[in-house]
């Protein structure tokens, strides 16, 4: 542990990244994750936050995939009036 500390302090001179900064950013990231945000426990490891972040991004990507497919199917059935309505909404 102590050897790791000293090493990170040495490299910190070059990259100017402190462990505090990283921890700060990780906790900010944690606030954005619905999985962990709801959980009561204060201490969640950084590795866990990163893992949940990856899962969340993947699930969002999947949702975009699904919704693209759905919109493509729906696009075939929407009529011109609907499209015109949406277009007018946009111009507001």
């Amino acid at each position: 542990m102590s050897s790791r500390r000293s090493r990170s302090r040495q490299s910190g001179v070059n990259s100017r990244i402190t462990e505090d900064q990283i921890n700060d950013l990780v906790s900010k990231l944690q606030q954005l994750l619905p999985e962990i945000r709801e959980r009561r426990s204060d201490k969640v490891s950084a590795a866990k936050v990163l893992q949940e972040t990856c899962n969340y991004i993947r699930s969002l990507h999947r949702e975009v995939d699904d919704l693209s497919g759905r919109l493509s199917e729906l696009l075939a059935t929407t009529d011109t009036a609907q499209a015109a309505l949406i277009r007018s909404l946009l111009l507001q």
Binding site: I17, I22, L25, K28, L29, L32, L33, T53, I57, L60
Partner: peptide, 12 residues
């Protein structure tokens, strides 16, 4: 690392 975490937060 710092950049990655910041960008990830914004991206999400």
């Amino acid at each position: 690392m710092c950049n990655l975490l910041e960008e990830t937060a914004h991206y999400i």
